[in-house]
């Protein structure tokens, strides 16, 4: 499985990392990684440092995650996308919608 989740001891930081191809095949795993994380005010980190490729359905999945994060009054950060993935985020102008740390 190329989607991994880690929750910090204090329950406040949820780190989801997607490796290799971030596309429609990750849909189910990606959704189940966050859907039950409802602690109010949590920080959600989407770690893309090991993702090599991303398509537009992945952009859609990130928007669903963003909806979820907003519902629990949390924060969303995208972490270290590589050049290819960052190019996709840039074309979609996602830095206008969320924090992207390179």
């Amino acid at each position: 499985m190329n989607v991994k989740k880690q929750v910090s001891a204090d329950n406040k930081v949820v780190t989801i990392s997607v490796e290799e191809r971030f596309d429609f095949s990750a849909h189910q795993a990606f959704k189940s990684a966050y859907v039950n994380e409802n602690a109010s005010g949590s920080l959600f980190i989407l770690d893309l440092s090991k993702a090599s490729y991303m398509d537009s359905s992945a952009l859609g999945m990130i928007l669903l995650l963003k909806d979820h994060v907003e519902n629990v009054s949390g924060q969303l950060k995208i972490f270290k996308p590589n050049d290819a993935v960052n190019k996709i985020l840039e074309i979609a102008q996602f830095h206008r919608l969320m924090t992207i740390e390179r």
Binding site: L59, E90, I91, A92, Q93, F94, R96, L97
Partner: peptide, 24 residues
């Protein structure tokens, strides 16, 4: 949200690229 749009001149040179400036 799509790749750069282009203006080409008649000799095939790129006059301008217009990158995405807005979320889809």
């Amino acid at each position: 949200g799509i790749p750069d749009a282009y203006i080409f001149d008649q000799s095939g040179g790129i006059k301008q690229r217009v990158p995405s400036q807005h979320p889809p």
